[in-house]
């Protein structure tokens, strides 16, 4: 169907569209995965990706280096998400609210909890713990994070972007990315620990 439509277009335009299309298709699962964790439901995630792809095509000439396509389109995705969230807010916000700082959150370590002497494990406690965790448990723990931390965790731990790339995407200093990641990871581990206790995955002596 598309090949037919493309035949009537100038060659340069056809090539450009085909390269764009192939690159987006190659990244579609990644874009959708990140959108799903940001929006927390499939329908909104699909809308977010569709809006991102449309905006990316419209501003394709702003991308100077094709090798940076992935970081570039993820930046459009996160900006679109933040902009939509601001529009939906009852009171308009100019920036994402930074949750109150707590050193306890940042310092929380699942590893240390798993190595408490009163716990009963056979073999390797960390491995057992991770094996018992379902993908759904991880998804719920990520979804429960405050928005600014969730974005940092998604972009770093799930998508593998560098702190510098995340800093550009979120328009915040690298130090803020480090701090959001540290707090997000601490909260995530705490949530997983609480879930494991509630689900009976951890047994005391």
């Amino acid at each position: 169907m598309f090949a037919e439509a493309a035949r009537e277009l100038p060659l340069k335009q056809v090539d450009e569209r085909h390269v764009f299309e192939a690159t987006v298709i190659g990244l579609l699962d990644q874009l959708f995965g990140a959108a799903l964790r940001l929006a927390k439901n499939r329908e909104d995630a699909e809308d977010l990706v569709a809006e991102t792809v449309t905006k990316a095509w419209a501003s394709r000439h702003s991308l100077k280096d094709q090798d940076k396509f992935r970081a570039w389109i993820f930046r459009i995705l996160t900006n679109t998400f933040m902009s939509d969230r601001r529009k939906q807010a009852v009171r308009p916000q100019t920036a994402i609210v930074e949750p109150h700082r707590s050193d306890e959150e940042e310092a929380f370590s699942l590893f240390e909890q798993l190595h408490q002497p009163f716990l009963l494990w056979w073999g390797n406690p960390e491995k057992q713990f991770l094996n018992n965790l379902l993908a759904k448990d991880l998804e719920l723990a990520v979804d429960a994070l405050p928005e600014s931390f969730r974005m940092a965790v998604i972009l770093s731990d799930m998508e593998g972007f560098s702190y510098q790339e995340i800093s550009r995407m979120l328009n915040v200093p690298v130090g803020t990315v480090r701090s959001r990641l540290a707090r997000g990871r601490g909260l995530l581990q705490k949530a997983l620990w609480e879930h494991a206790k509630d689900a009976g995955l951890i047994h005391g002596r």
């Binding site: 699962d29 991770l130 993908a135 998804e139 965790v153 731990d157």
Partner: peptide, 9 residues
């Protein structure tokens, strides 16, 4: 594990 969960279908 997080990276695996991040891949949407």
């Amino acid at each position: 594990r997080l990276r695996e969960v991040g891949r949407g279908t």
